[in-house]
Amino acid sequence: MNIFRLAGDMSHVFSILVLLLRLRVAKNAQGISVRTHELFLIVFLTRYLDLFTTFYSLYNSIMKILYIVSTASIIYTIKFQEPIKSTYDKSQDSFLYWQFAVAPCAVLASVTHLIGSGISGFSFIELLWTFSIYLESIAILPQLIVLQRYREVENLTGNYIFFMGAYRFLYILNWIYRANFEAHYQHHWVVYICGVLQTLLYVDFFYYYFKSKKSGGRFTLPT
């Protein structure tokens, strides 16, 4: 554990809390994509299967459970809890995530896992872990698309996405730190490429986020 990873994890937790708070305070789901959180739930459920097989640390286990429970709670709140449920506009949140996210990532993960470990080293848990790395890298896309459709970004929604992006950026610093200060460290290019791709997806958002903070005005996205 290093300061960058801890800060990243905290940023992630904070972003989830901001979103849950935002849903309860505003009592609506305008500009929020459930599909993004459904993708994250798939990511966590496929990556954290090692909860049953390996114990790393109490911190690690607690955070994994926290991510799964809080993400499920976000989905439940938007899809099933009134009055929020009736404010959720399905037609705006229409990213075809099975065709454009889950299926391609499953194919890519199968190919890279088979190339990496061969038939003899095949492991279903490893395959799902690789799949989750790919899927996480694009899981924010439905949210960014919804944001683009609404144009005007509500304050807490902007903050929630900002802390999501900050979390990914801090993870890159964490890898740089680990590569320099950890003995027996080995690079993992799939993790790096997906991590960088995921962070790049936030760059455009960051630009307008800081611009609106600086001017103190309303946060709107250009067409």
């Binding site: 990873r5 090692d50 640390s57 872990w129 080995q186």
Partner: peptide, 10 residues
């Protein structure tokens, strides 16, 4: 072995 390293991350 290589993968183990990244499994302690979230």
């Amino acid at each position: 072995k290589e993968k183990e390293l990244f499994k302690d991350e979230l």
